[in-house]
Write a protein that binds this DNA or RNA. Structure first.
Length: 596
DNA sequence: GCCGTTTTCGGCCCGACTGTTTTCAGTCG
C-alpha cells in the first residue's frame, strides 16, 4: 500500500520558507521573496489545518496565498510533490536548508556556509557544521567571525534550533510563563507597566515565542533588569530598547521597552497580527500617515504623533477600539470603522458550567472526576456561578445490563435532586443533571431512552472510532444528535492540540441541524482541546448556531480553564447572546425542556 | 508573487540589533 505523505502547517510553512530562501540566493525580485515569506508565516499561524482548507478548495482565502502559490500547493497535496517548488530548490545544496533552522542564520549565511565548507548533503549537515565550527573553519570565512561560530556551536549543541522548530506552546502554558516574567519585571521601580504581546495577547490557542512590552522612562535599565531574570539561561541580545533571552526551559522571550508617551503605539504594533497591521498601514498611507511602533508619522510635516494607549491610537484612525482577539484582518478593521464591532462575550458573562465530571461512582469506562459533587459545587459558588451541570461519562454499557445502568442513573438523579434542595437553600446555585453520552460508531447513543428520560439534558460526544471518513462520521453525529434531550455536542472536532487532528465532518449539515433543533456546539475550554476552534466558532456564529463554553473539568481546579474557552469564543466573534451558559437559570431551563 | 472603496497594473512596512565592519549587510519581527 502506498504511504500517504503527511502535510502539516509546519511542514508546508517550512517548504515555503525554503523556496523564499532559494529565491533570495538566486537574486529574485525581493517582493517575490517576501511574498513567499508572507505565505509561509500565514500558513504557520493558521488556526485550522491547511489540508482541510485545501479540501474545501479555499487555499486562496489564506492571506498571502494567491493563485500561483495556491496552484503549486494544490499540486503538492494531490500528487505529493510540487514540480515548481522542487525546481526552485534543486540547484541549491540541501544542507543549507538545515542551516536555516539555526537562529541568526538566514539564506545568505546558510548558502555561504554550505559552499565554503563543502557541506552539501542534508544528512548529517548540522553535525558536519558543528565539527567545522570546532575546528575554527567558520571564522575563516569572509564576512563571518568568531561570534557566528560561537552562536552556531551553542545552537547546535543545545538543540536550540529554535526558529519555530520546537512545537508551539499551549496558550495556557504561555500565559503562565509570561505571567511569571511580567511579575518579575514589575518588581523593578523603573518599569511602569508590562504586557504580553503578539499571539499571546491576541489569545491564539498556541503560542510560539513570548514577547513582552514595558513602559519605562529608562529603557536601557529596563532591558538590563529583564536580562537579569533568574530563569535566563542565555542573553541573545540586549540593546537600548530591545532584549531577547532564552530561559533555562528553552523558551525564548523578547522584550520591547519604550517611554510611556509612546506605549500605546508599541503595544499596538507588536500585538499584531501582522496582517492586521499591514491593513491598517495601507489605510493610514492613504491618509498620508505612516505607522510604526513609535507612533504615527504625518508624511507632510514629518511630525510624529504619540499614543499613551491603544484606544487613542485607534480613535485617531477613526475606528472603534479593536480588542486584540479580533486583530487578524478578518473584517475587524472595516467593522471598527463603521462602529460595527461585535460586543464580544466576556468571562463575567459566563454564569454556569455545563460540562463537568465529579467522582460520582457511575461505573463508566472513561475517566471519572477527581472531586466530589459537593467540592465541585463549592468551587462553582466561588466562581459566582448561578448553575452547574454535572455531566459524567455514561455508565459502561458493555459491562452492565440495562437495569444496572438505569439504577445508577436513578441514583444520580436522586443525588442531584437532593443537592438542589440543599443548595437552593444554602448556596443559591442550581444544579442540573446532565450526562456526557458516547455516540457509538453506528450513531446510536450509549444509553437507552429510559436513561435519557432521567436527565435534564444530554451532552453527546465521540470517544472512539475517530478514523471514520467524513461521510460516515457526519451520519454518525447527526444520528447521535437525534434525541430531543441532546442539547450540546461536546468537543465537536475531537482535536487535541499538538497531539492529534480532529475528525472531519460536513459542517454545513451539522450547522443546519444544530440551528434547526437548537443544539449548542461546545467550545471546550480544556487547554489542549479548545474545540471548536476560533475560526469554526466564527462560522457557527454566522450560521446562527448556539454555543456553550464549558470546562470539561475532571477536577475542581479545571473549572478555571473556562477563560480559555472565552478567549476562543471572542476570537470567533461570539457575543453573549450566542452562548447558552450566559443565560439565566430560567431561560436555560426552558431551553432544556424545549423539544425543537 | 500578492493585492485592490483611486482594482487587473504598479505598487509592495520599516526599524532594531548584531557581527563584522569602518559604513554596512544580514537577520528578525
Amino acid at each position: 500500500m502506498k504511504k500517504e505523505k503527511v502535510f502539516t502547517n509546519k511542514s508546508v510553512s517550512d517548504l515555503l520558507n525554503n523556496v523564499s530562501a532559494a529565491l533570495t540566493i538566486k537574486g529574485a525580485n525581493q517582493f517575490r521573496v517576501t511574498a513567499y515569506d508572507r505565505a509561509a508565516a500565514s500558513v504557520a499561524h493558521l488556526s485550522s489545518e491547511i489540508k482541510d482548507i485545501w479540501d474545501e478548495n479555499k487555499l486562496s482565502d489564506i492571506p498571502g496565498v494567491g493563485g500561483s502559490i495556491a496552484g503549486h500547493l494544490d499540486e503538492l497535496f494531490r500528487t505529493g510533490k510540487s514540480s515548481h517548488f522542487e525546481s526552485e530548490l534543486k540547484s541549491l545544496p540541501p544542507a543549507m536548508f538545515e542551516f536555516l533552522k539555526i537562529s541568526g542564520i538566514g539564506p545568505k549565511t546558510a548558502f555561504k556556509l554550505a559552499l565554503k565548507l563543502a557541506i552539501f548533503d542534508k544528512k548529517y549537515a548540522l553535525k558536519k557544521l558543528e565539527v567545522a565550527c570546532k575546528k575554527g573553519k567558520v571564522r575563516e570565512i569572509e564576512g563571518l567571525g568568531k561570534e557566528t561560530e560561537k552562536n552556531i556551536l551553542e545552537s547546535v549543541k543545545q538543540e536550540n534550533l529554535s526558529k519555530n522548530d520546537s512545537q508551539r506552546m499551549l496558550l495556557f502554558e504561555a500565559e503562565k510563563l509570561a505571567g511569571e516574567v511580567i511579575d518579575y519585571l514589575k518588581e523593578s521601580k523603573e518599569i511602569i507597566s508590562a504586557d504580553p504581546l503578539g499571539s499571546l495577547r491576541r489569545k491564539v490557542s498556541t503560542v510560539g515565542d513570548i514577547d513582552i512590552s514595558v513602559s519605562t522612562n529608562n529603557t536601557k535599565k529596563a532591558v538590563s533588569w529583564f536580562c537579569k531574570y533568574p530563569k535566563v539561561k542565555k542573553v541573545i541580545k540586549a540593546g537600548d530598547n530591545v532584549g531577547s533571552v532564552y530561559l533555562s526551559s528553552g523558551h525564548q522571550i523578547d522584550l520591547y521597552a519604550i517611554e510611556p508617551k509612546s506605549y500605546g503605539s508599541l503595544l499596538q504594533h507588536f500585538t499584531g497580527s501582522k496582517q492586521h497591521n499591514i491593513h491598517l498601514r495601507k489605510i493610514a498611507l492613504e491618509k498620508g500617515l505612516s505607522l510604526s511602533e513609535h507612533g504615527i508619522k504625518e508624511e507632510k510635516t514629518g511630525k510624529i504623533l504619540h499614543f499613551y494607549n491603544e484606544k487613542a491610537f485607534y480613535r485617531f484612525l477613526k475606528m472603534d477600539y479593536i480588542p486584540p482577539e479580533l486583530r487578524e484582518d478578518r473584517g475587524e478593521i472595516a467593522a471598527a470603522s463603521k462602529g460595527d464591532l461585535p460586543a464580544l462575550v466576556e468571562r463575567k458573562d459566563i454564569v454556569g458550567d455545563l460540562h463537568t465530571h465529579s467522582n460520582f461512582e457511575i461505573k463508566t469506562s472513561h475517566d471519572l472526576g477527581a472531586n466530589s459533587p459537593k467540592e465541585m459545587i463549592d468551587k462553582a459558588v466561588g466562581l459566582k456561578y448561578q448553575y452547574l451541570g454535572f455531566s459524567e461519562h455514561n455508565p459502561a454499557v458493555s459491562r452492565l445490563n440495562e437495569e444496572e445502568v438505569i439504577l445508577i442513573l436513578k441514583k444520580k438523579r436522586n443525588l442531584i435532586d437532593k443537592l438542589n434542595y440543599t443548595s437552593a437553600n444554602k448556596l443559591n446555585i442550581r444544579i442540573f443533571n446532565g450526562l456526557e453520552i458516547d455516540i457509538r460508531p453506528d450513531g446510536r447513543l450509549a444509553i437507552p431512552d429510559r436513561g435519557l428520560k432521567l436527565l435534564d439534558y444530554a451532552i453527546v460526544s465521540i470517544h472512539s472510532s475517530m478514523r471514520l471518513n467524513k461521510d460516515k462520521m457526519t451520519k454518525r453525529v447527526i444520528s447521535g444528535l437525534s434525541h430531543p434531550k441532546v442539547k450540546i455536542l461536546a468537543h465537536p472536532t475531537g482535536r487535541m492540540l499538538n497531539h492529534r487532528e480532529g475528525y472531519e465532518l460536513d459542517w454545513k449539515k451539522i450547522f443546519s441541524l444544530c440551528k434547526k433543533r437548537k443544539i449548542a456546539l461546545e467550545i471546550n475550554s480544556y487547554p489542549d482541546r479548545l474545540d471548536l476552534s476560533d475560526t469554526m466558532v466564527r462560522e457557527a456564529v454566522e450560521a446562527g448556531v448556539l454555543l456553550s463554553i464549558n470546562s470539561d473539568s475532571h477536577a475542581c481546579s479545571h473549572m478555571d480553564f473556562i477563560s480559555q474557552g472565552v478567549f476562543v469564543a471572542r476570537r470567533g466573534w461570539a457575543e453573549r447572546k450566542n452562548i447558552i451558559n450566559s443565560w439565566s437559570v430560567e431561560k436555560l431551563e426552558n431551553f432544556f425542556k424545549s423539544q425543537a
